[in-house]
Nucleic acid binder design. Structure first.
Lengths: 227, 227
DNA sequence: TCTAAATTTTATAAAATCCATAAAAAGAAC
DNA sequence: GTTCTTTTTATGGATTTTATAAAATTTAGA
């Protein structure tokens, strides 16, 4: 189970986060100040860290440095009350993976954590940038390429996102909304056919017979599936 | 049509939002203060709420709490004039889905609203999509499939709805009106035979002997039943 | 700035499915 | 058994959804 360390001095926020993340199926360790956070990190070796910037004693930046001294890979998400603090987070080159300004919605933070974990899983021992296979295709995200035997297929970053999403939930139907959300994000217009087009183009390149796709299958009225 | 409730005391902003969102094809209800917003919410039951934080009388946070008391799912987007305003309240507790700081661009807010609606439409659709069994059939909603031993049976989203409804109230007779309401929605013609047609087609696929249905049984003059 | 590649829009085609109709079958009432 | 009502199902046109080609636009590099 994915273990998440939260460092947040405000009791309310901390409890809310703990509850929400536990509900989501994560194991949560919660620290109420920076020193405790560093201790907990050493003891528990979590897969993900959520750091409030403003904390008594050791602040979030300091905690981040301490953690990075020990583990340069674990994903770190900063929580800040003020947008201006973001600049500091970015400027210090602390190796933060993302940041959020308060207040944040439950869904928002869950989505971010999931996204970061997916993105960075390779560093933490998972496999987001790791190669994966779909049917007889070997996808190598770091090269933005796929291989079928020795033949190379060029892929765009977006291609990789689509394929990874389908691959991660093989057998499950990925509906168009989810695909739009995860791959295109906020700037996707529902009446656009960009998604179809992209799938179509991608199939042309990766499927042996694009008319009979084996990798990206259509589930009419629902979305796409791979298995 | 998707109904959006706006609560915003500034006339100019409110009118602009109303116009823009109407142009986008949403039905807009606009309140100019918090009390009115709560009233309108009760009366209109909108699909989305846009709340200004600073409002005379009841502020946005209070309105949010009131709304959440009544509906814990409806997506809520906060509008704030200053980032610092946010600091005082934790979005987590209020169950806000997102927030924006003014001034915001038209495109930006539309994109956000669309994205939130997209997310909440596909995920928080409400009902759990856990697997369930009916007779010797195992239905897996996330895959839009059912399994009998190892053989797969493809299901449409509508098939799953029908089956889930029957399964949830096993033993009870589901009358045609209920079925039509729950599965087809408000706009269904009572004299239509579409429902029969659908049941017939579904039986062909899921029943071993469609002439002697064991999963979807007819209760003449009443509806259908599963047990 | 120019060029090439990637992406999106537009337009049209193709596919899947939905549903109205009508005829047949089954059940209920008498 | 006859008649009336309800349900089933075959058929084909309508509608919705998805696919693809071509053009337009945007993006990234040189």
């Amino acid at each position: 189970m994915t273990k998440i360390l939260i460092a947040e001095d405000d009791d309310h926020t901390r409890d809310a986060l703990r509850e929400v993340l536990t509900m989501e199926g994560y194991e949560v360790i919660a620290a109420s100040d920076g020193l405790q956070a560093v201790d907990f990190f050493r003891a528990e070796n979590p897969d993900f860290v959520c750091l409030d910037v403003m904390m008594p004693g050791l602040n979030g930046y300091e905690v981040c440095k301490q953690i990075r001294r020990q583990d340069e890979k674990v994903p770190i998400l900063f929580l800040t009350a003020k947008a201006e603090e973001i600049d500091t987070v970015l400027g210090l080159e602390l190796g933060a993976d993302d940041y959020m300004t308060k207040p944040f919605g439950v869904k928002e933070i869950i989505a971010r954590i999931r996204a970061i974990l997916r993105r960075t899983a390779s560093r933490g021992g998972g496999r987001a940038d790791d190669d994966f296979t779909m049917d007889d295709l070997r996808i190598v995200p770091t090269e933005l390429r796929a291989y079928r035997d020795k033949t190379e297929i060029q892929l765009s970053p977006r291609d990789v996102k689509v394929l990874r999403l389908l691959s991660e939930r093989r057998g499950k139907v990925i509906d168009r909304n989810t695909l739009a959300d995860e791959v295109w994000g906020v700037d996707y217009f529902p009446e656009s056919r960009a998604l179809d087009q992209h799938i179509s183009q991608l199939r042309k390149r990766i499927e042996k017979d694009p008319a009979q796709p084996r990798i990206i299958r259509t589930v009419h009225g629902a979305g796409y599936r791979f298995e």
